[in-house]
């Protein structure tokens, strides 16, 4: 039964407790803030664990890290003489995200995620339903655009306006009026399009999604038999189109693994699901064995359990 929006998350809290129902969210926020702190502890305390920003950095002044998309843009801009440090850094980053899930960058590292998640949370609180019809595929056009403008101008043109690097650099080095761009992203996601920036437009998300389409760490829906169509995961998922191919394909013999590169490995579905449908696992192997719901699971009895309440909302 579809859970009414106002009861979103209540069932998960009833079953797992508040911390259990926000485990991955809290871990994710801690990681996002922690990475910022690692960058900031240098200028604050003179402890140079990470120096630079998400575009390029060095770990302990030795291991280079570079954004591989920036390397592609540099090559498109015609700068072919780039130092091997940048190439090595890009290779390290690319391999890392192929392992942990490309768009883990989006949900675990990128600071804009906090902004757009905030917009989405407020959108739900204000019950804003309307949304501009954007195609998620627009991001591929945007990805192409970053390379085309680089080639056309011979500069890293997109970096002039890229909200992701602008916010991260801004938090570490000073943002100027860049905050206006971030505010624009927030308002766009809040009033114009649901998951507008991260889910439809961001070319960095598109690029890391490409890396992630081959990634090792995946969200798996091995417990999909437990699913009672409460639809809560669709509500919180930043890329809900990735869910049905895994959760609803049992009859057709489909894989329970969420294979789409668009999945950000944020783990909100794992948190919100009261019935343990989802768990992190590997592409080829489950790490958590799904169990059938016990007979005394609230879904089977409790009348107050939100997903037991009939709702005429149409299943999306």
């Amino acid at each position: 039964m579809v859970t009414p929006l106002k009861d979103l998350g209540k069932d998960a809290i009833a079953v797992k407790g508040w911390f259990g129902a926000h485990k991955w969210l809290l871990l994710r926020r801690a990681t996002q803030v922690g990475i910022l702190v690692l960058f900031l502890i240098g200028p604050w305390a003179g402890l140079w664990l990470l120096k630079g920003n998400l575009a390029a950095s060095t770990v302990l002044d030795t291991v280079p890290l570079t954004d591989p998309l920036l390397v592609l843009q540099m090559l498109a801009a015609g700068f072919v003489g780039l130092a091997s440090t940048a190439l090595l850094g890009a290779a390290i980053v690319a391999v890392f995200y192929v392992l942990v899930g490309g768009r883990a960058y989006c949900s675990w590292v990128c600071p804009v995620n906090i902004v757009t998640d905030g917009a989405h949370w407020l959108r739900r609180r204000l019950d804003i339903r309307q949304s501009a019809r954007l195609k998620p595929s627009a991001r591929w056009w945007m990805l192409g655009l970053t390379l085309v403008v680089s080639a056309a101008t011979g500069t890293l043109a997109f970096e002039l306006v890229n909200p992701v690097s602008m916010l991260h650099r801004g938090l570490i080095f000073g943002i100027g009026i860049g905050w206006a761009v971030i505010a624009a992203i927030f308002l766009f996601d809040l009033f114009v399009a649901r998951h507008g920036w991260c889910g439809h437009l961001c070319p960095m998300g598109a690029f890391y999604g490409l890396l992630g389409s081959a990634s090792l760490v995946r969200v798996r829906a091995d417990g999909r038999d437990n699913c009672d169509d409460c639809m809560e995961c669709y509500e919180v998922c930043p890329e809900p189109q990735v869910i049905p191919p895994a959760v609803k394909s049992a009859a057709a013999g489909g894989s329970p693994v969420i294979l789409s590169g668009a999945c950000t490995n944020c783990g909100r579905c794992i948190d919100i699901c009261p019935n343990d449908v989802y768990a992190f696992g590997l592409r080829g192997r489950a790490l958590v064995t799904p169990r059938p719901l016990p007979a005394d699971h609230p879904r089977n009895s409790a009348p107050g359990f939100a997903s037991n309440v009939q709702d005429d909302r149409k299943i999306a």
Partner: peptide, 21 residues
């Protein structure tokens, strides 16, 4: 790539990264 490593490595803190605007 506007990473700011040069800014960090300048012992006299004279370098700045330009902000939007």
């Amino acid at each position: 790539v506007r990473c700011g490593i040069c800014v960090r490595d300048c012992p006299y803190d004279i370098l700045k990264l330009a902000t939007l605007g």
